[in-house]
Simulated scan of single mutants.
Amino acid sequence: MTAQLRTAPDQDRFTAETERFRRELLAHCYRMVGSAHDAEDLVQETYLRAWRSYSRFQGRASIRSWLYRIATNVCLTALKPRPIRMLPSGLAGPYDGPDRPPNPVAPGEVSWLEPLPDAWIAPSAGDPAAMVIERESLRLALIASLQHLPARQRAVLILREVLAFSAAETAEILDTTTAAVKSGLQRARARLNELEPEPEGLLEPTDERARALLDGYIAAFERSDARLLEQVLRTDATLEATPFRDWQAGRAMCLHILDAYVLGAPGDWRMIATTANGQPAAVVYHRNDDGVLRADGVVALAATATGVSRVVKFHDPALVATFGFPHVLTR
């Protein structure tokens, strides 16, 4: 009976065995490529390839590791012709030149990192501790750093450190040796430590302190009140926004740029709280000249016990729909 099913698998059995891994595979592909939309496409390709080869799956490995082998190789193939996705802070140091509005990068010059809606990967129920680990492995700072690793080193690090596959299992997934896995992991760890030597202790987005910081940030924009922002940001806060090359370091510089070029008048901005990459976030609307509040993008905050240490704004109206919100606010 089993052999017959292996020879001619039906859709119901395939779905029952594989569908429960879809969300974690989406998170895996996102860590690899830094784009929510690309990750979604790569998961679709993973399931298409898995279905096509399901009749040849003999169960020597678990169905989970088999799917991860397919997904990882799909990602590695997709990454070969693509530039890495970055944040402005990955291009150069903070801007310290003459006062000017933020300087946008020419379209197509840089591939920008994208935020990941928590709702895309959050399980309906699960171990709270495991959910915390999952969120920590998707923080924006970590995802941005991962993109600077060579693709196979990135895969080794994610499979070993995030997903807890053994060296032997990782070697099987990547069709290499355990010695190569151990060497790749050592190099990846060293490079990651250079990029992010002291990862911050961020508050969980459900923490009351994190929500208070997000509420304060939203209120500051909606009221056009720089003094409220001063209360929210740490003295060493950084501010960056895609698709702009310039980014600011230090609360004074952040406040100057926002007050001089961004905040506008009370009512120009509307924000709705959400979560992205395991961090407090908001979808952003801006009131245009016609008086209509239209989608503007998504902002994510790095919330700590002493205030917001990092603000990353993704200026892309299409992201608002990705997070499940309308393009235009009618009230």
Rank of each mutant, 00 (worst) to 15 (best):
R234H: 02
D268L: 12
G297R: 05
T330N: 00
E208L: 06
S53C: 00
A226I: 07
H286A: 13
G59Y: 15
C29S: 15
S124Y: 08
S137W: 05
V311D: 05
D175V: 11
V262G: 10
D41S: 15
I173G: 10
T15K: 09
V284N: 03
E240W: 07
F57Y: 15
A180G: 04
R189I: 06
R56E: 13
A302W: 12
D12M: 01
R139F: 12
M32R: 15
V74F: 08
G97N: 05
R6N: 14
P199N: 06
R69I: 11
A226L: 08
A171F: 00
T7S: 15
D259F: 02
P9C: 03
R23Y: 07
V156E: 07
L76S: 06
I70L: 10
G297Q: 01
V284E: 12
F314V: 10
E114Q: 14
R6L: 12
A71E: 12
Y47W: 05
R139D: 09
E169H: 01
M86I: 08
S35R: 01
G97P: 04
A168L: 07
L195C: 04
V298G: 07
V283F: 09
A321H: 14
R52I: 13
R135Y: 10
T235M: 07
A295V: 04
G59F: 13
W112Q: 08
L67F: 05
A180I: 10
L42W: 02
R270N: 05
A168N: 06
E198I: 04
L203W: 08
Q186Y: 13
F221N: 11
R100Q: 11
Q58L: 06
L202Y: 12
P243M: 10
D215H: 00
G34W: 10
A212E: 14
A129K: 12
G93N: 02
G250F: 00
D215M: 01
S166M: 12
A50G: 02
R189W: 02
T77L: 05
Y30G: 02
G126I: 11
R64V: 06
W120T: 05
G201A: 14
T7L: 11
W112T: 05
Y285R: 08
E17Q: 15
E222K: 03
E134F: 06
M32I: 14
P117D: 04
L26Y: 15
P205L: 09
P94R: 00
V284W: 07
V292F: 00
A321G: 09
A318W: 04
